[in-house]
């Protein structure tokens, strides 16, 4: 039997993609679909995609040939919660940006990790609110110029990957779009695991972030991502000031514990038994 070669068109509707030239979301989209293909799927029938508002929410919606639920800003994870609990048999995958997942939707992100909700969250962290024109995000590097921080960002960025790990996620990894091999292998791994899985893809937005932050083009941003990525093992040996401005990449956690749907349905079984006994 010959291995069927990957064709991205097989997974996409015939609707033009909205992304700017050089956008990192396209890399994440393509790596995800390649990971799906390499995991052995030949279509997206077993998946339901949820996304919120922002550029990366448009990765699945409506482009994937699959069920895709495009929700409100920040609310993809609650909607995914309702879907997963009513249909535990489907693979629920959430796509979102940093503003969507850890800005406006941060609380849901933490609680879903705490509950070990069996969903796979892929966050494209472009460090900016891109769709609205380049406003500062909770992930914007310190001192970066954005439209709402014309003198440079005066806040420290959030470490979403470590937060997810602390909150109870089953699998957490962070890679940059310059590390496609590692990113794809993590995506494949997460696709085969259960529980709350989170992959943060640190990505370039040449349009809304790069040009104000002093980058000439997308290529320069990807090289910057590559050069600033520090493997987790190495980062552990460095002092805090040595890590300033760096992107710590790698796998942060991998563990197993019962998922929310499993716990809920075993409780339901118990409740039904008790009723029968009465």
């Amino acid at each position: 039997m010959t291995e069927e070669s990957f064709s991205i068109k097989k997974y996409l509707r015939d609707v033009p993609l909205p992304f700017c030239p050089g956008c990192g979301a396209v890399t994440v989209m393509s790596e995800f679909l390649r990971a799906v293909h390499e995991t052995g799927y030949r279509n997206l029938d077993k998946f339901v995609f949820c996304s919120g508002i922002g550029c990366s929410a448009w990765i699945p919606s409506p482009h994937f040939k699959a069920d895709s639920v495009h929700t409100l800003h920040g609310r993809s994870i609650p909607v995914a919660t309702g879907i997963k609990l009513m249909r535990p048999d489907v693979n629920v995958v959430v796509f979102g940006g940093d503003g969507d997942i850890v800005g406006i939707g941060l609380s849901h992100f933490i609680h879903a990790a705490r509950r070990n909700l069996d969903i796979f969250v892929i966050m494209v962290n472009n460090m900016i609110y891109g769709m609205t024109g380049g406003q500062v995000a909770p992930t914007t590097p310190f001192k970066s110029k954005t439209t709402t921080t014309p003198y440079g960002s005066f806040e420290y960025p959030l470490d979403a990957a470590r937060l997810a790990a602390t909150a109870g996620a089953a699998y957490v990894a962070r890679w940059t779009t310059a590390q496609t091999t590692e990113l794809r292998s993590s995506l494949k791994k997460a696709l085969e695991l259960k529980g709350f899985r989170f992959i943060e893809a640190v990505s370039q937005c040449p349009t809304a972030f790069g040009r104000r932050a002093g980058f000439k083009n997308a290529g320069e941003m990807v090289r910057w991502l590559r050069d600033n990525a520090v493997p987790l093992e190495e980062a552990e040996k460095l002092a805090e000031d040595e890590l300033a401005g760096k992107i710590v990449t790698g796998e942060f956690v991998q563990k197993q514990r019962p998922t929310l749907d499993k716990v809920v349905y075993s409780m339901i079984e118990e409740a039904r038994k008790k009723v029968e006994e009465i």
Binding site: C50, V69, T71, L72, G74, R75, I77, P78, V79, A80, T81, G82, I83, L85, M86, R87, S107, H108, H111
Partner: peptide, 15 residues
């Protein structure tokens, strides 16, 4: 916000 979000999700899952 989460409560009604989950409700809409559940409805799309057929419930």
């Amino acid at each position: 916000l989460a409560a009604i979000g989950a409700v809409v999700g559940a409805s799309w899952a057929g419930a």
